[in-house]
């Protein structure tokens, strides 16, 4: 058991922060906890949350991440989707470090970026440190009203090297989906075939900040909206990168927008260290390409392995 890692079930710091927040509202949490029923404590939390929101009494970081809102409003609706609908199983979550910067690199699929949300929810709820995943999103997300503002409040920021390096060097867990629209909007027949991995910008960001890269393979997301067609004219008209046609959408209208309940697996691979290449490693294009390929191959092989183990799309 020499290589085994100790994973505390409760992060003392976070628990302390939780308790501190409760103290603000409930004067004696220890006494109340024994006497008050669960619903009343929840009501107390809810009212305190409403009061904080009304008074603007919360912190937002320089990227616009609103932790209070994310934990209390944005994350909870994902719970039934994660636990009941997709029945997500995470593998190797201990590869995600307890603290410090790290770059999560995952495959992208499913027409709608639910895979990114599920990965973020999985880390926030099942990882012992409950770390928020700071995703890097496309320009289109931030240009769209409502969605853009929500994405920022949920901790996402624009996929550019300046933001990635700033987040990583301040010790955040950053998520990136290098395939971008090519991955998420690929036809169903190309499922689980990794698309081009961009220009390797994410690798150079990791090299510059010396943080580990964690390859993540997601199985199940490809089947939620099997894309069998793409209405290019409509996409161009609406300014979308693609306009999906699935067996049920747009045929059944809003009903067709319900994702199919496939069984999901999210595997977090062994971290790839980037702090061993010396000072100016990010300026070596060959190294960047090689690392990019290595990450891509790792994800692709893991995908194949997970697929051979899977017996049924919906039952797993």
């Amino acid at each position: 058991m020499a290589g085994a890692r100790v994973i505390p079930l409760h992060d003392p710091e976070r628990d302390a922060a939780r308790r501190a927040r409760h103290v603000e509202v409930v004067p004696e949490p220890e006494q109340q906890q024994s006497a008050t029923p669960d619903w009343e404590r929840r009501l107390t939390d809810l009212l305190a949350f409403a009061r904080r929101r009304l008074a603007g009494d919360y912190e937002v970081d320089e990227f616009g991440f609103d932790r209070d809102l994310t934990e209390n409003v944005l994350m909870p609706p994902l719970k039934p989707l994660y636990e009941k609908w997709f029945r997500v199983e995470t593998i190797g979550l201990n590869n995600v470090p307890m603290a410090g910067g790290a770059l999560i690199v995952a495959n992208h699929s499913g027409t709608v970026p639910l895979d990114a949300l599920m990965t973020a929810y999985g880390i926030a709820s099942e990882h012992p440190a409950h770390r928020p995943l700071r995703g890097l999103g496309a320009d289109l997300v931030f240009r769209t009203p409502v969605l853009g503002a929500l994405a920022r409040k949920g901790g996402q920021t624009l996929a550019c090297n300046a933001d990635a390096e700033r987040l990583l060097s301040s010790g955040e867990l950053v998520g990136v989906w290098p395939e971008g629209f090519k991955g998420i909007g690929k036809p169903f027949k190309d499922r689980y075939k990794l698309q081009r991995f961009g220009r390797g910008g994410f690798v150079s960001a990791a090299l510059k900040t010396g943080v580990p890269i964690i390859p993540v393979s997601i199985v199940g997301a490809e089947e939620i909206y099997p894309m069998i067609g793409d209405i290019k004219a409509l996409a161009r008209l609406l300014g979308f990168p693609y306009f999906p046609v699935t067996p049920f959408f747009p045929l059944l209208g809003p009903l067709g927008a319900i994702p199919l309940p496939s069984k999901w697996y999210i595997e977090f691979g062994e971290p790839i260290r980037t702090d061993v290449f010396g000072e100016n490693a990010a300026d070596d294009p060959m190294l960047v390409f090689n690392l990019t390929d290595q990450v891509r191959e790792t994800i692709q092989q893991t995908l194949y392995r997970l697929l051979t183990q899977r017996r049924n799309v919906f039952l797993g």
Partner: peptide
């Protein structure tokens, strides 16, 4: 704009 990084440094 939406295409700008979240935080500007002097050289941007």
């Amino acid at each position: 704009s939406s295409r700008d990084p979240a935080v500007f440094t002097e050289d941007m």
